[in-house]
Design a protein around this nucleic acid. Structure first.
Lengths: 339, 339
DNA sequence: TTGAAAGCGCTAACAG
DNA sequence: CTGTTAGCGCTTTCAA
């Protein structure tokens, strides 16, 4: 790791630092001979500009941060892939922050003990609430994603959870389900995400004249297939009667499918199951999973658009944008079912 | 975003910048009164140290990079989670780089057009070969992970692929399989990872006196369940005769399971299936998947240990370390099978 | 224990 | 079109 500075190149080439800088930054107005001479010196000395010094001088870091609770959750993994790719295409690097579902971690990530670390932040809160969020002085522009009710002052992009949840419910009701269970909301303090999905479920049931049965709502200790399998299994063993399960996410659906299978309950004949996120493996499990698919590419694109505007200085009130979703119908809750 | 500098705090508190710096960095030798006065000013002005300036002055970035082809591949997602977590515990942030399976991207990531971006790099190559890797002058210390044969000069941590593959093969042979197919090596240019797994398969078959049948090796156009389903489906439709499938990774196994299911082939009764990586959903699919489980926590820990030693100045020859693995036996290739 | 001043490596006015 | 020079905000000798 040789330590060659811009100035070394300048001396070697017999020009000023400004000229070298111009060449490195592809500025126009440099004679071809100068440029060639400088490039030759750069190659000979193996010069690489120092990112830190450049940042200090320009005030831009060329880096964005993405903060989610856990990248290994399939939806977040796919989101990270998409955001990283699109950010790279726009010339940004991506810093990954995991809050691990802890409100403390979310706070300290927002407060950021240092400034000038990133140019902007894309954040999917899982525990922090609007009111608190609105109080903070951020160290960089931020765009919120996901279904948390964002404060009016902050940009936010999400899918319409209530509407999507209504659609899931309508689909199940259309299949003849009258006792629809819900799986996967947090046992210890429900998240805004789960709250909105439950709200959509309830609203659609009421509209359809189907009774709302809170006793069929099965909370889990954490997001995950194992937790869902355990909770659903316990409920089934306790004699719960359902003919459909609306799962908070595909991971819960996976656990639910297994709990049902182990007990010999047929899907979709006895119980229909719908998941949420339409992760990569949804079309491959047995039975293939009906699921809500958010348009993640578009979500990432809009989030980055909003963020770049903020970085460029936009200072208006927070914009709250909705990204489309669709319901991908597969075997676990097909278009229609023999009765 | 107020712009408060260290100097502003110093003036406000009526002390020198050095004193403020001492307080911010928790240096000893500061009188309690001074410290209190400075902290009060910091709070009042809302001062946050500027990360970039600090980096330039100290030469440390406090950031590591993790480079993999695609974070949404379940194994990489889990690896990223683990590395990010452990890096955070050691006081580092994590920059995520995706090479998207392109050799160009891997090259430019190594060459790094800027220096001083990160203190170190953890890299899982998928296309780049040892010889080329060894030629580069890196801009930061690097540790290689995964099964690529690393150059002697570079640190590397991996699992013993050949041994694990032999174990998988022995397991299948023990189950009575005599025509074992392999699924998921790259159709266009095999990777070192796949090569080693095939090598283990062949060696174990020879040792067991079972014929090696290359015609049962099914390449795929890319890593993924869909690609595997397509390739395996085509092979089955063409009349391939197998009694076991050794899949390059769990994604291939998932596609293989589906291809078999769709065609009414019973797993494990007609065909046993083994995957690799033991990703989170392996115990939940139908049938549950037998898979090779690398010790990812340990892999990450060792990689970070090696990297921190390099960052600290260690300059000896490359160390090549092996991390343990295990074979997790589940329904798709159980301990024994009725014959 | 605290203060003054010299960089860290680069960019960007401003001249020339 | 190219050179000079003054910062960017922090850390860190070296004195006091």
């Amino acid at each position: 790791m040789p330590r060659v500075r811009l100035q070394d190149v300048a001396e070697h080439a017999g020009v000023s630092t400004k000229t070298v800088s111009n060449v490195v930054n592809d500025y126009p107005h440099v004679t071809p001979e100068m440029r060639a001479r400088v490039l030759a010196s750069i190659a000979e000395l193996g010069y690489r500009p120092n990112a830190t010094a450049r940042r200090l001088a320009t005030g831009r870091t060329g880096t964005l941060a993405l903060a989610v609770s856990d990248v290994s959750i399939p939806y977040f993994a796919e989101l990270a892939r998409t955001v990283a790719r699109q950010a790279a295409a726009r010339g940004y690097r991506l810093l990954l922050e995991q809050t691990g579902d802890s409100i403390e971690a979310e706070r300290s990530m927002l407060l950021g003990r240092e400034s000038g670390l990133v140019d902007g932040l894309i954040f999917q809160p899982s525990r922090l609430e609007t009111a608190e969020l609105a109080r903070y002085t951020l160290h960089a522009p931020m765009v919120l994603i996901g279904e948390n009710a964002a404060p009016d002052s902050v940009d936010n992009v999400m899918i319409d959870n209530v509407r999507a949840a209504r659609r899931v419910t309508d689909h199940l009701v259309g299949l003849g389900c009258r006792r629809i269970g819900f799986v996967g909301h947090e046992a210890g303090g429900i998240s805004e995400t789960s709250r909105q999905r439950l709200e959509g479920l309830h609203a659609a049931l009421r509209d359809a004249g189907v009774p709302v049965l809170p006793e069929l709502e099965i909370a889990t200790s954490a997001i995950g297939a194992a937790q869902a399998e355990e909770a659903v299994g316990a409920a089934l063993d306790a004699g719960i009667e359902v003919d459909g399960f609306f799962c908070r996410d595909d991971l819960s659906a996976l656990g639910t499918l297994r709990a049902l299978r182990v007990r010999g309950v047929a899907v979709p004949d006895d119980v229909a199951v719908v998941g949420w996120d339409d992760v990569a493996w949804a079309p491959f499990v047995q039975p293939t999973l009906t699921s809500v698919r958010p348009n993640t590419e578009r979500l990432a694109q809009i989030a980055l658009d909003l963020l770049e505007e903020r970085i460029a200085g936009e200072s208006g009130p927070g914009r709250h944008l909705i990204v489309e979703h669709s319901l991908v119908v597969r075997e676990s809750a097909p278009a229609s079912r023999p009765r």
